[in-house]
Design a binder for these strands. Structure first.
Lengths: 223, 223
DNA sequence: CATGTTACTATTGTCGACAATAGTAACATG
DNA sequence: CATGTTACTATTGTCGACAATAGTAACATG
């Protein structure tokens, strides 16, 4: 029998951390903004202990920088940050794909196909929002199948930062058709190359690098 | 002109975190041990605030696990942890090598050669301790040359965990000659394949995977 | 004896107060 | 006027106290 984790108690610190994470991801703060303890203390109605705990949590996620004796500041996303993030994600998602191959079951392939259908539907009605979240879920599928917990959690952090970048450049609209075709190919690759993990790795890695290139091109032409 | 970072003030929390990090890495604690606030409060002569801050720091480094309402516990290193760590490190150090290639200067190659000499000297007098620390420095050279700060800091964490593993299995003695030959080859690879970053990547990645295999074999035959 | 309840203890969670510091503004000095 | 000094304010750092909880032991109940 498999027992589910009993739900952990969630303290004030964790709650505040979650609220602040959302606020930052949604762009309520600008890079460089200081998170003032006194102010947030009033806002959330908690004392400074859980607040500072929350700050640590945010630091771990890479959303803020804590400078001793000065304060906690929302990180500024620079182009360099993006350029540093992508190659790492490409390497690690590629690795995840490779490790996922031996764990691919008909079931999991069916789930991927399902997500793909959802993406296609969203693309057809040009619902970028829906497309994007399903696209994230698609990636999460094979990442989870890598069964490497350290890899999964590392990618979670890296991908959150990428998500944040995305929000910062919110006018960026993906070419949904191109992206869909890419993912269709990845799915087919997983079905075809069941005995070539290395090939699946390269496939996913290249996919992310190409998406990155498109993004960079967008930055150049629009900025 | 390049200005050096002015030295950041270092609070009690950071000091305690450093002391505890060393204690854990050196094996003063066993996996599963609880870090009691009251006890450490007496030991370090600080109050609980900086102590809890230190716990967060340790959690970020992956050395402890904080369970709400129960406490902070030293992580237990399992074989699975090691098995999860190595492939990620291999992928990322490989990437670091690839990114380092365009930044390789005669100077930096000379430094690598120097480190290599130090390793050779240590290997000849069978000084495993010295060999190991120089070996770490050798890797750090090309990691730094990747000039990708996110990659550098990610690898720092991953490599610390590996270091910790090593301490846990302290009877593991590397075959210094084999290891030295490997690194000699890596150095030569960097000098020869200056226009083949991909090749350097594969070279370093394979190196770590092979070292990992040796380690696993050791675990099997000795455990 | 099996189970439920209560009381107690050890520990973490949260709070508000005071200390220390960084940054700034006003003033003093030559 | 340029620089040094002092006083003040806003903010983070640290502390000790009380609250809440988890875990255990003792007891009660049928």
């Amino acid at each position: 029998m498999k027992l589910k984790d009993i739900n952990k108690p969630i303290g004030l610190g964790a709650q505040v951390a979650e609220a602040l994470t959302l606020a930052i991801l949604e762009g309520d703060y600008s890079g460089g903004d200081q998170l003032l303890e006194l102010e947030l203390q009033d806002y959330f109605g908690v004392s400074r202990s859980p607040l500072r705990e929350a700050f640590r949590e945010l630091e771990k996620k890479g959303l803020v920088e804590i400078i001793p004796r000065k304060g906690t500041f929302v990180k500024t996303i620079t182009r360099r940050d993006i350029e540093e993030n992508f190659p790492i994600r490409a390497a690690l998602e590629g690795l995840a794909a490779q490790l996922a191959v031996p764990n691919l079951t008909p079931d999991s392939l069916a789930m991927m196909s399902e997500k793909l259908d959802g993406m296609r539907a969203a693309a057809e009605r040009e619902d970028t929002q829906a497309y994007y979240s399903r696209h994230l879920a698609f990636h999460e599928l094979f990442i989870a199948l890598s069964k490497n917990r350290l890899l999964i959690s590392s990618l979670e952090t890296l991908r959150m930062q990428a998500l944040w970048h995305r929000f910062s450049y919110q006018y960026y609209q993906e070419d949904l058709k191109k992206s869909l075709a890419d993912h269709q190919q990845i799915y087919e690759g997983f079905t075809k190359y069941r005995n070539q993990p290395e090939r699946c790795r390269k496939m996913v890695e290249d996919h992310i690098i190409i998406a990155f290139d498109r993004f960079l091109t967008y930055l150049k032409t629009s900025g």
